[in-house]
């Protein structure tokens, strides 16, 4: 018997037809409507085609083409003219409802796309994090989307339709999650070599849990809890990690690498690709290119000791 399967860090992507929020639910309804309607139209067309082909064997040539013309009028003109406005009006209604911006004063989260990770900011709480968006359930949330480099697109299939992240613009996506849980978010616009590995986790929580999480992020970084971790902080600075990664009160960082202040609270690293375990962290730090080729982080050449210390430090960043 194989062992218990290892817990997967990133959740499985949900289906568009399995919605957990009002936006996605409306669209799912529309989708089913169109699938059924379109399927019937297709089927009917094929049936007509088969019928037309079928009684070819023994038949007198038709006297006139009045019947044929009537068919064109009905199937080519009348049916589409009736069906298409229905599709359009239904779509318009759903479109207006799903694109309504969340009322002002609702929770705002700023999301900045980077090659190939997500910067997440809670402006009211003054919190910066990466690759994990926490939201309260049953409440509309405003996601303000922009990009620091190329175009990305944010998509959480069971929650809402996607919206692009553009350099130089801010797009607002309003969404609401009705069921607490973890959902996979994906980048849907091709953004370079590791577009496939640009994911995040949307964590929908009860209100109190959410506030608690935000408060934890608001606090500064945890002080190293041991001598080893203390040494790890020095390694972090000496190895140049701090030139790219910000850790509050420790390093400035640069804006193209994720903030690591609360790294240990996240479930995944490298934008949803790896579970946040000690082994993965070590592998990532030593050879990010081997795991996610083309990523904008260089490999490092740390001795075993230094690595252990660094890991101890990073694991304490709660």
């Amino acid at each position: 018997m194989p062992a218990e399967p290892a817990p997967v860090a990133a959740p499985a992507p949900g289906s568009v037809l399995d919605p957990v929020g009002p936006e996605a639910a409306q669209i799912a309804g529309l989708t089913w409507f169109m699938i059924v309607l379109g399927g019937l139209l297709w089927l009917a067309t094929v049936v007509f085609l088969v019928l037309a082909l079928r009684h070819r064997a023994h038949r007198e040539p038709r006297a006139n083409d009045r019947g044929a013309k009537a068919f064109i009028a009905v199937w080519g003109v009348v049916v589409p003219v009736v069906v298409l406005p229905i599709v359009f009006v239904y779509s318009l209604v759903v479109g207006v409802q799903t694109s309504r911006p969340a009322p002002p004063g609702e929770l705002t989260v700023e999301v900045v796309g980077h090659q190939f990770w997500w910067e997440v900011r809670y402006p009211e709480a003054g919190v910066v994090t990466a690759n994990e968006i926490h939201v309260p359930v049953d409440r509309p949330v405003r996601l303000e989307l922009t990009s620091a480099d190329v175009i990305h697109s944010l998509w959480i299939p069971p929650v809402a339709g996607k919206l692009d992240l553009f350099p130089g613009h801010t797009n607002v996506l309003s969404l609401q999650v009705d069921e607490a849980g973890r959902y996979l978010g994906e980048c849907a616009e091709f953004c370079g070599i590791q577009h496939a590995r640009m994911q995040f986790v949307l964590v929908a929580q009860e209100e109190e849990e959410f506030s608690e999480h935000l408060r934890a992020l608001q606090a500064g970084p945890a002080e190293p809890g041991s001598d080893l971790a203390e040494a790890g902080r020095e390694v972090f600075l000496a190895a140049g990690c701090g030139q790219c990664h910000r850790i509050e009160d420790v390093s400035e960082g640069a804006d193209f690498a994720p903030d690591l202040t609360h790294l240990a609270t996240r479930d995944t690293i490298a934008a949803g690709m790896l579970e946040n375990t000690r082994g993965n962290l070590a592998g990532w730090i030593l050879d990010p290119q081997g795991l996610k080729s083309g990523v904008r982080m260089p490999p490092s050449n740390l001795s075993g000791e230094d690595l252990q210390a660094l890991l101890a430090y990073l694991e304490g960043l709660r």
Partner: peptide, 16 residues
């Protein structure tokens, strides 16, 4: 749709 209907109608009209 007009074109597709026209082809189906033509097939129906003749002997395929």
């Amino acid at each position: 749709a007009i074109q597709i209907s026209a082809w189906i109608a033509t097939i129906w009209q003749g002997r395929a």
